[in-house]
């Protein structure tokens, strides 16, 4: 078990060594990079919008229910919604969701290229396939993740505001006061730093499992599942470590 884990980590680090090299052709790299920006980041925005708005609304409703106490000020619900979104939801939970969407997409795409010998074809041409295929994916998501997190924060707060406007659970004024009360800008930075690390984990680990697929369609499916499960667990582990270090 330990030997297998050490061997896996070794293979992962060796792959990263091949990934982080200067591209053979910058023109080709930029073409891939722009395609990945669209595929990994822009195409993830609809799900980010939907999840964030619902979670923002749900946190507000549940927050109000759980803080129904005359000793607590009315703005507590807004404050709770903001802190939950900034500290945990928009960085960690969103990245766990993206690990499912983006991670499985990357692992199955690269895995299919492996079993259909497209990666071998690149290697035989003298192309560093790891660099050509994986580097644009990593950089695209790492670069776009801060924007995704900020968008998720904003949309989540909007979801909570929707509850304040459409229901009588909380007043608009209390909610707006709550989300501004004792605001610490460092929490935004904290969320962004975490999400960038998680973006790297999602793309690099999923690429690793896809790149090392051997066999057929069944193995590609297995690699895709393993990529999602292992990157999710690694995200949680790093969430714990980063929270301890940064907060």
């Amino acid at each position: 078990m330990i030997i297998k884990l050490a061997s896996g980590v070794g293979q992962y680090l060796y792959l990263l060594k091949r990934v982080f090299r200067w591209p053979d052709r910058w023109r080709m790299f930029m073409r891939q990079f722009i395609a990945e920006l669209d595929k990994q980041a822009l195409q993830s925005l609809p799900i980010v919008f939907i999840i964030s708005i619902f979670i923002g609304a749900i946190i507000t409703i549940q927050g109000k229910t759980n803080t129904e106490n005359p000793l607590l000020p009315a703005y507590t619900t807004g404050l709770l919604t903001r802190e939950t979104l900034l500290l945990e939801f928009s960085s960690t939970i969103l990245c766990l969701i993206l690990a499912g969407k983006v991670g499985s997409n990357i692992a199955s795409e690269i895995g299919t290229m492996r079993i259909t010998e497209q990666i071998d074809a690149m290697e035989i041409m003298g192309v560093n396939s790891a660099n050509y295929l994986i580097l644009p994916k990593i950089l695209a998501l790492v670069l776009m993740m801060p924007f995704i997190v900020i968008i998720s924060d904003a949309i989540g707060l909007l979801g909570g505001y929707g509850v304040a406007v459409l229901t009588d659970i909380i007043t608009k004024e209390d909610y707006l006061y709550g989300i501004q009360y004792a605001f610490n800008p460092y929490y935004v930075t904290f969320g962004i730093v975490k999400s960038v690390v998680f973006a790297f984990i999602i793309t690099s680990m999923s690429s690793f499992y896809g790149y090392h697929v051997r066999g057929g369609a069944l193995e590609v499916g297995k690699a895709s599942t393993t990529a999602v499960v292992n990157s999710s667990v690694t995200i949680l582990l790093f969430d714990l470590i980063l929270t301890k270090i940064l907060l």
């Binding site: 290229m113 259909t116 010998e117 497209q118 071998d120 074809a121 290697e123 035989i124 041409m125 003298g126 560093n128």
Partner: peptide
Amino acid sequence: IQMLHREVGMLFQGSALFD
């Protein structure tokens, strides 16, 4: 090895075209 590969062309069993 990379330079050698640039002197090699290969036709794969399943064609291996980039889909």
